[in-house]
């Protein structure tokens, strides 16, 4: 289906030395280390086949972008990676999603434990209607995380999300008092407050203006040092700018029903996808002839 070779199960342990992160793209290993991978992932909403047979591996300390036209199932795939699709009653997942070799859809897996390790940032900024401080402190509190000093922890998270200087004097104000871009950085700070391993971002900039978008993109590049990031984006330039690897999805209409099923067309290093795509559909999409 794609250029992915199934990674060595130990791959993430002997993964790329961190020195390569100065210029991650040149030092990028050919195959992702496989912090997470999907194997034969199929998603159904009731009788509707939303995603067909997706095999993907996501590398540690890499940003992986999922791109493709509307309805290609990229958000659906993303939401499968921390079992957010469980919240949709009719959704059904087949195949497996492995996190460090453990199938998160396995029988004894608790979706709440999964989400504590695999956090999510959403399309529209959705801070809690609580103070800026409590937005950050919420996660550590609910998961019972041992934090020596919550004030320091809140500061650290806000600094990591490049928001501290803008909010340090109004931590008691509502998260809704911030601008859209600040709210989204608050949401990112809230996500990293529980020290997840992987951060999923579902079109995190689509509701933001270009300046706020650029701030978030810079932030993602910084966060790559510590986290594995998987981002869905409509914006091809964004994928090209920030991601290390890109997966291109498209939608194939069903011959009888006309329902469009998403499938993975090509997955490779971002430079490869944008400069030298193997598949005609990828080339059509990135050159703007389609989608």
């Amino acid at each position: 289906m794609s250029a992915v070779t199934t990674p060595d199960p130990q791959g993430d342990i002997v993964s790329t030395p961190s020195t390569t992160h100065a210029d991650p793209r040149s030092g990028l290993p050919d195959a992702p280390s496989g912090v997470m991978e999907t194997v034969g992932l199929n998603v159904y909403y009731g009788g509707f086949h939303a995603v067909h047979d997706v095999d993907l591996a996501f590398g540690r300390n890499e940003i992986t972008a999922l791109i493709g036209p509307s309805g290609c199932g990229k958000s659906t795939v993303l939401r499968c990676l921390n079992r957010m699709n469980d919240l949709i009653p009719a959704a059904r997942v087949e195949g497996s999603v492995n996190y460090h070799g453990i199938d998160i859809y396995g029988p004894k897996v608790d979706p709440i434990e999964v989400r504590r390790r695999i956090g999510m940032v959403f399309q529209k900024p959705n801070p809690f209607p609580k103070s800026i401080y409590d937005n950050i402190a919420y996660g550590p509190r609910v998961i019972g995380m041992q934090v020596d000093n919550m004030d320091d922890h809140v500061e650290r998270c806000l600094r990591q999300a490049a928001l501290w200087d803008e909010v340090k004097d109004k931590l008691k104000e509502s998260g809704y008092s911030l601008s859209g871009g600040q709210q989204q950085r608050l949401c990112i700070a809230r996500t990293i407050a529980t020290a997840p391993d992987v951060i999923l971002m579902d079109e995190p900039c689509s509701a933001l203006d270009p300046i706020a978008t650029s701030a978030i993109e810079d932030l993602m590049t910084d966060l790559r040092e510590d986290y594995t990031i998987i981002i869905v984006t409509h914006n091809m330039q964004q994928a090209a700018r920030v991601s290390d690897r890109t997966a291109f999805f498209t939608a194939r209409p069903d011959e009888t029903t006309g329902n469009r099923t998403g499938l993975l067309v090509e997955y490779d290093k971002t430079s490869q996808i944008f400069e030298n795509p193997r598949d005609q559909r990828t080339e059509d999409y990135i050159s703007g002839r389609f989608g």
């Binding site: 801070p127 609910v142 996500t191």
Partner: peptide, 9 residues
């Protein structure tokens, strides 16, 4: 808001 909370675990 519910999604945000679920997303944290």
């Amino acid at each position: 808001l519910r999604e945000a909370a679920y997303g944290i675990g």
